[in-house]
Design a protein around this nucleic acid. Sequence first.
DNA 1: TTGTACGCGTTATCAG
DNA 2: CTGATAACGCGTACAA
Lengths: 346, 346
Amino acid sequence: MSSIEKRKHKQITIKHIAREAGFSFSTVAKALRNDPVVRLDTRQKILDAARKLNYYPNLMAKTLRSRKSKTIGIILNDLTNPLYYETIEEIEKKLKKSGYTMILSDSNFDLSIERENLITMLSKNADGIIFSPVSSSSDNMEIIFTNGINTVFIDAKPDNDRINYVYIDHQMASFLATEYLIDNGHKDILLFNGPKYLSSSDEFLKGYRKALEKNNIEMDESLLLWGDISIEKSYNKFLDLYHDKDSIPFSAVICLSDLMAIGIYKAARELGLHIPENLSVIGYDNIFVSEFLNPPLTTIHAPKKRVGLKAVEILLSRIENENGGYTKIELKPRLFVRESVSRFSK
Amino acid sequence: MSSIEKRKHKQITIKHIAREAGFSFSTVAKALRNDPVVRLDTRQKILDAARKLNYYPNLMAKTLRSRKSKTIGIILNDLTNPLYYETIEEIEKKLKKSGYTMILSDSNFDLSIERENLITMLSKNADGIIFSPVSSSSDNMEIIFTNGINTVFIDAKPDNDRINYVYIDHQMASFLATEYLIDNGHKDILLFNGPKYLSSSDEFLKGYRKALEKNNIEMDESLLLWGDISIEKSYNKFLDLYHDKDSIPFSAVICLSDLMAIGIYKAARELGLHIPENLSVIGYDNIFVSEFLNPPLTTIHAPKKRVGLKAVEILLSRIENENGGYTKIELKPRLFVRESVSRFSK
DNA sequence: TTGTACGCGTTATCAG
DNA sequence: CTGATAACGCGTACAA
């Protein structure tokens, strides 16, 4: 294939416009930015020529020159988790309104993939990153600090002063859930937590402990179950609990995620357990379907849209006025009572 | 703020490595690509220097020079629709494996936003586009053809020979649904279709018509309802149907999307209609929750992962070996019987 | 008001 | 084997 063939779709540049309109290319550059130093009628001619040639600017060249790419990197950990849908949509809308684009990538809870993702964002000159880290204490954090790229953490709050984050108070979430169950007469409450390496699991456990303490209930360590944020895995893990047992030593379950609650629903159906008569369940996140489950899931609502909204606001403000301090926002979850919890009395 | 301040985080370039390692920058460039013309030990020194300085390449410069950005644009229409996420995740994984990144954007069923999205992809020198168009006959199609950018359509098959697409046979989907209902004794079947401007609505209607014809049932035009792909809107629209009516003139509903079916579930609960005793419901897509609804939703499964997988395969193959023809793939949907349809007998 | 020259970080070609 | 130089498309001093 000849080298002419290869570049058959050569891009229209300001030079082409210059030739077409009969001006030098630097005048064209100014005209395209509507710079008032260019006379109105020549500006008009140039814009006409641009339209005629279907010109669009080469953002790579622009970025290379200006060091602003108008793109934001989003790094998440599980793109199939509906938890993120609303956040992502909100981010996309907000960014577009301000003329930004987003590069989306998934680390799959894997530190080395996360590392690659981070480097990619740097390589592509992202102006900023919205970042849900695998762990808030990994080496990957260094990449962000040494390169000084503007970033907003979501789902984590690293203990570093020079950082922005939008955090949902997971501790409060489990606290609310636990107290609600206690108020309804439950004492033996299983905490179906996320994986150990997640800082949210940590926080979730703390809130649970706190609520038990406050109500003078001693925590039974056997009622702590570590799982994964996945319907299938939760389903399996929950079934396993029942092997060789005639009765269960708890009357209620709190899940780190609505997805895990859905897994329990499925297991319960197979085990012939009725929710909430035989087992009460509380979830966390309030994903869009929780309301439509059978029975509708009582859950702790996480303000997902606000996370996206705030993250973008903070990021853009830091990008646009370089000075300015660091912003730390802590959003509060709320209990949504539906029908998966029953009053318990022995 | 001084101009020195502004560029405080100057990127490490091959020139810095050159100075550090004591070679010219063009030798460095070759060494970094492991070009064997560079002697092994100098290659080693250079790589060491690069690692020491935490070098990462500037992809903007690379792209400007090579006209390959290693990024793919994804243009969808409703980022909150769970339908897309399995596809997106699959795309993301596949792309990453091949060293590509994705820019994700949402057109929101709006032609002018779609236009912007397309231009952005061009401006950012995307190597290709995976594209779910608002309409397969709009002016925006021109942008793709005149610029000759590699694209794979999903959710639509424009009538143009020089195009790639991965299409799910929507006509077959509604055909399957309709026949299944007829087999179960239903004759008065409401088609709860998507918006008129969607080509999938068109196809969906055709399949429905075909199934009725084949079974010698005359179509009652009043049993065709145009809606939107949204839980809330479907819920409202369905409630409206019942105003000032004592009974409903149909025993079953087919929805263009599981989301619409969920809207109906909600409406039915409020109206005191039991599914499937008083009303049978079939959805389309088989999103991950359909199985967990009450009752589990009978639906037509759409092979969402395969759509993503195939789309990326086609796109990358076209990008990497420029020649090659156009690929058109038509994926077949499948009926998933669950519990939202009952046998009907008057 | 318009034009010229240079640099952003790469890759590619050609000399040495 | 290594190094100098031009080019990718754009922005910005500075000169005219």
